[in-house]
């Protein structure tokens, strides 16, 4: 029910009904962007879609920061594994 899916704005539909064409992995649907009035949306922006409405504009900087953190966790783990593999305690 609270299903929200990220989609990319492909085109702002200029028909006075607050619609934007959004693509989710190549699947396109017109989505109502009336709840994002404050945001300046443009093609290439990513939004979170819920029951045909854009609820939020995805903050790419925050997304990158989250991924960087996760990447760091993964790298540290890999390094440790490698260190373990090459260590010689005999």
């Amino acid at each position: 029910m609270c299903l929200g899916i990220p989609g990319e704005v492909v085109e702002l539909l200029d028909d006075g009904r607050d619609l934007a064409m959004v693509s989710v992995a190549g699947v396109r649907r017109a989505v109502n962007i009336g709840l994002l009035h404050e945001e300046k949306l443009a093609p290439g922006d990513w939004i979170l879609i819920h029951v045909g409405f854009a609820l939020s504009k995805i903050d790419e900087r925050e997304a990158q920061a989250a991924l960087d953190w996760l990447q760091g966790v993964g790298d540290a783990y890999t390094d440790e594994l490698e260190a373990l593999a090459t260590s010689d305690i005999t």
């Binding site: 899916i5 990220p6 990319e8 989710v24 992995a25 990513w46 995805i58 997304a63 991924l67 996760l70 990447q71 966790v73 993964g74 540290a76 783990y77 890999t78």
Partner: peptide, 20 residues
């Protein structure tokens, strides 16, 4: 899928599980 697949990575999950 962007903003989806990156957050489903099994290798990162294993690393995070160790930290947890």
């Amino acid at each position: 899928m962007r903003f989806v697949d990156e957050f489903r990575d099994a290798a990162t999950a294993r690393a995070l599980a160790t930290k947890i």
